[in-house]
Computed example of a mutant assay.
Amino acid sequence: MGVLASVPKIAERHFSASEALVNSGVTFLFALFAWYYNIYTLPAYIAHDKNKGLSLFRLMRSLLLGLAVMFLLAYVQQLLLSHLDFGPNMLMIEVRGILINLTFYMFLHLLYQSHQNQQVGIELERTKADNLGAQYEMLKQQVNPHFLFNNMNTLKAMVETNDEHTVDFILKLSDFYRFTLESRKHDLIHISEEIEILNAYMFLLKARFEDGINLVNTVEPQYNSSLIPPFTIQLLIENCIKHNIVSLDHPLEIRLYTENEKIIVENPIQLKKSQEFSTKVGLENINQRYIHLLNQKIDIEANEKIFKVKLPVIYEYYNH
């Protein structure tokens, strides 16, 4: 900027090295001030105005301060080159200062907006990757090989004993996997659809454990139109079976109910003697989906007797 400002002086017929040098120095000092001032005020701009676009107040403040600084520099120039006419010379320098300040302000703003767009793009890619990972983990847990293996064994036993519920079992198993294929395409489904999935899942479990497992569902009908990530409750019940004894001697009663705008899955703690290694991926998966969709975490409460998972109710409209 300093060199560019001295070009007109150099091009004059009566070239004065001292005038060109002082003129260039004044412009250089002001450009240095304007550049670092705009950078220095950028953090405050990011913190307060990142969603407001160009800040008119910040621009005017920068221009006014720039005018004051440039006036001081013009006065210094007048002291060094007293033969120059201060009025026209000062006006020319002030105009130059405004143009430099505007150029730097617009350039840094453009740079900042570009940075923000990159950050948004990175965040979208990260969210997409997290969502795909969550869907993959959900799918792995839904099409659990052990679950399929156990159901095939149950079906084999039912066929061998000519159980009258064999056809119903096959239909429910088919329904459950159909739900799996359909629901995994969506981020959210209605509670009524989730309960339909749950009923098919519980039928399969009852065929295997008989009265060793029971689900008491007291969710009020008013919540049927609210939303939930698919297979959330099914994963929680699968988690209950994984960690607790399920038998006719020690039946596992799972409660599903609502309280304070939360859907609660509750089960008594009757831990198996040989505990399976828990990575807690299932609960973390559910938690991450709620953070992504609702910006809220699930609540987990546990004591010596009861284990509860509380899921925030999701409504289709935020102004519910």
Rank of each mutant, 00 (worst) to 15 (best):
I100Y: 09
M1S: 01
F209G: 06
F209D: 07
I263Y: 07
T127K: 09
T154G: 06
Y290K: 08
Q270W: 07
L198Y: 07
N319T: 14
H243A: 02
N260D: 13
V76N: 02
N153Y: 08
V313S: 11
N150S: 04
K308Y: 01
M158H: 08
F203D: 12
R58C: 02
P251N: 00
Y40D: 08
F277C: 02
P268Y: 00
H292I: 04
E137G: 05
P221T: 03
S174V: 12
N224S: 14
V159A: 12
F231R: 03
Q118T: 08
L204W: 06
I254P: 05
L235N: 00
Q119M: 12
E266Y: 07
L32I: 04
P43C: 02
F147L: 05
I93V: 08
K242P: 03
K52P: 11
N319V: 13
L42E: 10
A11V: 15
E210A: 07
F30V: 09
V167S: 09
I245G: 10
N214K: 15
E284I: 01
L311G: 05
E301Q: 02
I269R: 02
N224V: 04
N239V: 09
R96D: 13
A134L: 09
N319E: 15
K310S: 12
E193Q: 12
Q113A: 10
N89M: 11
I170F: 05
L91T: 12
P268H: 02
I98S: 06
S82T: 10
G87C: 05
K128I: 00
E125D: 15
H243M: 04
E220I: 00
W35P: 01
N38E: 05
Q116E: 14
I269G: 04
M202R: 07
M106R: 04
N224A: 14
